[in-house]
Amino acid sequence: MNTFSPGFQGRTHRFEGRLPPGQYPTEDFPVLSAGPTPNVPTDSWTFSVVTEDGTARDWNWEQMKALPQEEPEVDIHCVTRWSKFGTRWQGVPFDAFLDDVETAADFVMAESYGGYTTNLPLEDLQDGKAWLVHTYDGYPLSPEHGGPARLLVPHLYFWKSAKWVRRIRMMPDDDPGFWESVGYHNYGDPWREQRGWSD
């Protein structure tokens, strides 16, 4: 018999199979960031992929917008326990940035305007699992949600979807990013509830 929280009813029963453990659904779009929001004008925006030998490929805003575009509709899961279903984005499938890249690295660091970083296995950005998005719900992505452009890696907790991303740096060896250095899980799979170091 349950001995905790007498009289608690609860009412979120309807998302089984779609809601990862320990999450609750929200209709809002909460914001999580560690510092002030950087202001990044699109006319000076660039995005780079840098391999382990220092070779860089760069795209400016127009070049990025000229790449093939997709409109992913995905569920997103924040480590602060909210999940949002059916979010609609527009952006470039990440494979488009990796097509001509020669690398033997297994890991990447996503680096953002403002200095935020997060690390991922390279394979988590490949094969249609990730995007660089610039439009949310039909409108240009707002700065507090990572505009002008952010990563979208919906199969991991949302802190891996780096806001204001400016560079992907290939790493032969894994290295923790910002939240990963202050207690958050290195990989962050919401379905295995990989929230913190002890998970």
């Binding site: 202001n39 990044v40 925006w45 305007y113 403002g114 200095g115 560079r167």
Partner: peptide
């Protein structure tokens, strides 16, 4: 405004 070139500031 964040400078568009140069190294990223060592944020946080």
């Amino acid at each position: 405004t964040v400078p568009s070139s140069g190294p990223p500031s060592s944020f946080p």
